[in-house]
C-alpha cells in the first residue's frame, strides 16, 4: 500500500465525519480492511509525529483525531 495514499485517505475520512472528532485505532483499521492492523497503527502514529493527528487519552484509553479539531481543546483550555 502506498503510505501517502493512506495518509490522504485517513485525513479525508476524518474530515468527512461530522460531530465527532476522536476515533479509536479500530476505526482506522476499518478504513483499510485489507491491511494488517500493525501497518495502519504505525502510519497513524507517524502522522501524530508529523503533526497531522493528535492523541486524546482518557488515562485508560487513547483516541486519535485531526490536530486541533473538536471541542476538547477548548474545554481543556489547551487551544
Amino acid at each position: 500500500m502506498d503510505e501517502n495514499e493512506a495518509r490522504k485517505t485517513i485525513v479525508a475520512t476524518l474530515e468527512g465525519k461530522k460531530g465527532k472528532s476522536k476515533f479509536y485505532l479500530k476505526d482506522f483499521y476499518a478504513m483499510f480492511p485489507e491491511e494488517k492492523p500493525r501497518t495502519i497503527k504505525n502510519i497513524v502514529n507517524k502522522m501524530v509525529g508529523e503533526g497531522t493527528l493528535e492523541y486524546w487519552s482518557s488515562g485508560s484509553t487513547t483516541l486519535i483525531g485531526l490536530k486541533g479539531v473538536g471541542k476538547q481543546a477548548g474545554a481543556e483550555h489547551e487551544d
Partner: peptide, 19 residues
Amino acid sequence: KHGGIVGVFGYGGGVIGRY
C-alpha cells in the same frame, strides 16, 4: 476534571491531563 490532549510530542502515554 479530566483532560486528554496534553502529553509530550509523539507519545500517546506517560502524561495524564488533569484540571
